[in-house]
């Protein structure tokens, strides 16, 4: 999975944040797709070709943690990066324990974001390779 073309989903109820994040990701060569809520994502998104998901922890309706729980059900886990404007330790701990790639506090720098995205992509490719190998072994 190269940096170019990796498809990243952004879920945030704040349109400004959505637009800014998608621009930043695009400027770095990623593909970005934005959703205003978890429900929107689940109904309209294509998770299968997604490299990672950047999601706000709290939104009207289901939030980042709920999404994390849903995504843990799928065969190939999609790495999740949490962002929040109101960080709190219990939520962060809960998210990380459940396998989150990172937990970023708004406002965050591009280095932080891209670092997290890169780790997510690495995680994603590693897990894909594992699956392939397992498939081959079988």
């Amino acid at each position: 999975m190269s940096r170019n073309g990796a498809r990243i989903i952004v879920v945030d109820d704040d349109i400004s944040v959505r637009r800014a994040l998608s621009r930043l990701l695009i400027s770095a060569g990623y593909q970005a797709q934005t959703f205003e809520s978890v429900r929107d994502l689940l109904m309209n998104g294509e998770l299968g070709r997604t490299a990672c998901v950047i999601v706000d922890v709290r939104m009207p309706g289901p939030g980042g943690l709920e999404l994390q729980e849903i995504l843990s059900q799928v065969p190939v886990p999609i790495p999740i990066i949490f962002i929040t404007g109101n960080p709190d330790v219990p939520t962060a701990v809960k998210a990380m324990k459940a396998g989150a790639v990172d937990f970023l506090s708004k406002p965050f720098s591009e280095e932080e974001l891209f670092g997290a995205v890169e780790r997510a992509l690495a995680l994603r490719s590693a897990s894909t390779d594992q699956r392939r190998m397992a498939h081959r072994r079988r």
Binding site: R19, A20, L24, R58, I83, T84, S109
Partner: peptide, 16 residues
């Protein structure tokens, strides 16, 4: 939260 939201957007926009 209310303040971090626009700040995050500004930062990301500027870097982009």
């Amino acid at each position: 939260h209310e303040l971090n939201q626009p700040l995050a957007a500004i930062l990301s926009n500027a870097q982009a």
